[in-house]
């Protein structure tokens, strides 16, 4: 098979549930060995897309080819090569860590020696080796997710589908998690991940921004940032909401995003806007400690791209 050809190719996927079009004409490709991120607000259609790729939900229309296998017409063939980790914890809470691993290894017919070696390595990497005889239901959220990943990796998938694997996971576990993912990428495993954390999106090779079942943009994080119209200003202030109220609607200001210690403002021209915004804030009597030009995060990009879409629609 051609190594340069995309390993996943989805074309014109649609899936309706009664009145809602959960996925509405989605097309994208994933290259071999990359980490591909699907990002979007709740209800954007991320889970539905993942399910269709995993072969557990047939699309209404469209085609999915994973490593040369037509997943829509032959879902069972694809399942040999795909590992899917659902958004909702799907392991058996009344089975121990080891029993869960063994169960999935057996379903994928992994030899006992191989299973043991992999389980050992993966559990050590995620700091879970001392919990092997603990019931899965008694693990913390982060550990559950790492167990899910271990089970997903106990066979050798060509492609790994992770649906919000780090939601509700503590920062340390998230770091472990990503370290494992990078290791996998080095081994040539292709990873498709959805995430609600936009800082995580930045770790992906490529990103698709999903909204209402459609892909708005699909590119590398760097390229996406360049697509952001205008420039970003960071206003540091203890009263972010007041700042926003004072500057929304000013000439040249297209987006105001609340962040922890102030606001991010997307503007057309930073040189003229910095003094103008300073004046506006002083007039309104809102306290602030500085206005500087900043590097947009993927979150800024995402919010401003989404808002622009909303305006043009």
């Amino acid at each position: 098979m051609n190594a340069a050809a995309p390993i996943v190719s989805a074309k014109a996927l649609t899936k309706r549930f009664a009145e809602t079009a959960a996925v509405d004409g989605l097309s994208f490709t994933v290259n071999r060995g990359e980490i591909f991120g699907l990002v979007g607000p709740d209800g954007a259609g991320k889970t539905t897309t993942m399910r269709m790729l995993a072969g557990v939900l047939p699309p209404d229309t469209g085609s999915i080819v994973v490593d040369g296998i037509d997943v829509v017409s032959k879902p069972e063939e694809g399942k040999q090569h795909i590992s899917y980790m659902p958004q909702r914890f799907g392991l058996y809470e009344d089975l121990t860590v080891d029993e869960n691993i063994r169960f999935y290894a057996d379903l994928f017919e992994v030899a006992a020696g191989v299973r043991e070696e992999r389980a050992q390595r993966l559990l050590t990497a995620s700091g879970m080796s001392q919990f092997r005889s603990r019931l899965a239901g008694q693990l913390s959220g982060g550990m559950k997710q790492k167990l899910g990943l271990t089970c997903a990796l106990v066979h050798t998938p060509k492609i790994l589908l992770l649906d919000e694997p780090t939601t509700g996971v503590d920062p340390v576990s998230r770091r472990d998690f990503w370290r494992i993912l990078y290791g996998l990428r080095e081994q040539g495993v292709t990873i498709l991940i959805t995430t609600a954390y936009l800082d995580e999106a930045e770790r992906c090779n490529r990103l698709a921004l999903l909204h209402a079942g459609r892909i708005l943009y699909c590119d590398t994080p760097v390229a996406l940032k360049q697509r952001m119209p205008g420039a970003l200003l960071v206003i540091s202030s203890p009263a972010g909401r007041k700042v926003r109220a004072a500057i929304v609607g000013q000439a040249g200001v297209s987006n105001v995003i609340l962040v922890g210690d102030g606001v991010h403002v997307v503007v057309d021209d930073p040189h003229t806007c910095i003094p103008e915004l300073g004046d506006a804030l002083q007039r309104a009597g809102v306290p602030f400690t500085g206005i500087v030009a900043g590097e947009p995060s993927i979150e800024d990009v995402f919010v401003s791209l989404l808002e622009n879409t909303g305006k043009t629609q």
């Binding site: 659902p86 799907g90 392991l91 809470e93």
Partner: peptide, 14 residues
């Protein structure tokens, strides 16, 4: 009901 079916049907089990 326990949400284990989604993962189960994603495996090659017949």
């Amino acid at each position: 009901e326990r949400g284990t079916m989604e993962l189960l049907v994603s495996t090659p089990v017949r």
